[in-house]
């Protein structure tokens, strides 16, 4: 464990807690893409298959349970909660996320570390996580008015993966043979997808104006 990875995990934890808190307290999911939340639930479900078979550490298990629990409960809130579901903007949240799942699955069947179910699912979860934010970014551009919490959620989600890249660089230089191209490239693509959001997020923060993404 290094400071970059710990900071990355804490930032990731903060992102899901910000979202859960927003939905739970104001009982609204305005501006939140259900598609992205469903993709994230799938990412965690396929990445943490080893949660009950390989015990790594208490921290690792607890964090996995939190990420699984929060992502599935956010999906439940938006789909099932009688008040929250009313604020879900299904006419705007129209990104066909199946077009993301299938290519990631095919890519995982072709590019993986070992051709086993677990390794293919691991690669699939990495590729899917890289693109899972797309429905949310598209929704933000459509809905124009980005409320602070949703903006913070997306920012923290992007920042966590950027911190993980620093973690991989640190581990590359401190651990011999630490080379994992699949993870690195997927993580880099993921962070690059946030690049323009980061730009507009900092612009709005610097000029102290409401965050607006160009259409």
């Amino acid at each position: 464990m290094n400071i970059f990875r710990l900071a990355g995990d804490m930032t990731h934890l903060a992102s899901v807690l910000v979202l859960l808190l927003k939905i739970h307290t104001i009982k609204s999911c305005a501006g939140v893409s259900l598609k992205t939340q469903e993709l994230y639930a799938l990412v965690f479900a396929t990445r943490y298959l080893d949660i009950f078979t390989d015990f790594i550490s208490l921290y690792n298990t607890v964090m996995k349970l939190i990420f699984l629990g929060s992502s599935f409960s956010i999906v439940w809130y938006i789909r099932r909660h009688k008040i929250v579901r009313r604020s879900y903007d299904k006419d705007q949240d129209t990104f066909r996320h199946y077009f993301l799942v299938l290519p990631c699955l095919l890519l995982a069947l072709v590019i993986h570390e070992k051709f086993t179910f677990r390794e293919v699912m691991w690669a699939f979860s990495l590729y899917l996580e890289a693109v899972a934010i797309l429905p949310q970014l598209v929704l933000l551009q459509r809905t124009r008015n980005i409320d602070n919490l949703t903006g913070q959620y997306v920012f923290l989600l992007g920042a966590y993966r950027a911190l993980y890249i620093l973690n991989w660089i640190y581990r590359y230089f401190t651990e011999p043979h630490f080379v994992h191209w699949i993870t690195w490239i997927a993580g880099l693509v993921q962070t690059l997808l946030y690049a323009d959001f980061f730009y507009y997020y900092f612009e709005s923060w610097k000029n102290n104006v409401k965050l607006q993404l160009p259409a």
Partner: peptide
């Protein structure tokens, strides 16, 4: 470089 070492990451 086994993937094992990456499995400790979230």
């Amino acid at each position: 470089s086994s993937n094992k070492e990456l499995k400790d990451e979230l």
